[in-house]
Design a protein around this nucleic acid. Sequence first.
DNA 1: TTCTCTTTGTTAAGAATTTGACAAATGCAG
DNA 2: CTGCATTTGTCAAATTCTTAACAAAGAGAA
Lengths: 216, 216
Amino acid sequence: MEKDISSAVIRRMPRYYRYLEELRAEGVDRISSGDLSRLMNVTASQIRQDLNNFGGFGQQGYGYNVDYLHDEIAKILGLTRVHPVILIGVGNLGQAISNYVHFSRLSFEIAGLFDINEKLKGREVAGTRIRTYDELPEFLKSHDVDIAALTIPKQHAQDVADDVIKNGVHAIWNFTHVDLIVPDDVVVENVHLSDSLMQLSYNLTEREAETSSDEE
Amino acid sequence: MEKDISSAVIRRMPRYYRYLEELRAEGVDRISSGDLSRLMNVTASQIRQDLNNFGGFGQQGYGYNVDYLHDEIAKILGLTRVHPVILIGVGNLGQAISNYVHFSRLSFEIAGLFDINEKLKGREVAGTRIRTYDELPEFLKSHDVDIAALTIPKQHAQDVADDVIKNGVHAIWNFTHVDLIVPDDVVVENVHLSDSLMQLSYNLTEREAETSSDEE
DNA sequence: TTCTCTTTGTTAAGAATTTGACAAATGCAG
DNA sequence: CTGCATTTGTCAAATTCTTAACAAAGAGAA
């Protein structure tokens, strides 16, 4: 692409996409940045600025065509093709994520499930049978895999990351509570549930402090 | 507290906390912002700046005492008391989250589990029996609940949020794919898995574009 | 104790992000 | 077809966030 887009912008794109899906489902066929800004609770200026990083999708005096903008954002986000995902660690969270990926109408599909626990071998989750971890290298040689989701204890996280990277995976969806060290050409997206919960705890604690001191 | 702390700072605090836990577990008893910066891959300046929002926890010529700083951050994040959590929607994800909260060594405990599905009634997850959704108001009257985790289909999200708020809950951990509309005195923390996956997809797509064009 | 080295807290500069403003383009009513 | 109303794309100002720099404080060696 052209320029480097700021990560602040990228973080907001999926949200735009969600709202456009919603609007499309409701049969709305055009929307102005002003209306969208009221809906999403952001400034209209930010919406226009964000979208213009990728091109002029709107039209003066008209606004944005919902279908068109939706599809353009899908292209931007790389959702126009299906991304095969493997998931490693089929515990509670792993199963939940597998089902989530499997059933969501997103552009991702479960290509394989792996677990260190031999007892799980052969069992099916989200329509896919579980393989043992030692089948992983072989599997990655014969299958095109875009993303590895890591839902394993943090002790193994870095080792498993190293393994999948060594076998050609370039994107990791990391649910473990550690920050992975990876080469420059590998992208990592963290879902740190504990961090999220701690932030909530902070905000809750703040709220209580404010409420009790009767506000300023 | 004193001033309003920027949300950029708050987002980073749980990460500091994680690293301090790790250091403490390793028996390290002091650390300088410089060493921590190398470990965490952020600037030392940012670490000092961030911490100083809350007070001077370090000492010139010495650095920070790991135990002390750990405990101070725990206080800041509101982790020094146990937060009772109810969870609504005991599907795959709900069970995973329940177990996660139950087994993690964090300051949160599952106080109740609720599901609309009558068939689940009485079953146990993470050591807690599942109640039906209509027991919720009664339950909230007799129990002190800090946080409601929502792991339900997005169609019900806003209604359920309204219900728990009406019954006195002030913090929502939202796993649904919609943005909730809540009063000013209610805090919401979103875990939007789909957004996260889309960001990963974007970064992966970008990476591929860069690689194929042989870089600049 | 004294001197040197380390390291913080803090101020200020620099960078990035967000918001505001408006000219130019287009829609739409009459 | 004309003219007013709408709305974008973009430039500039304002704000927020990050990094750099350094004086002051204390650690630790001799």
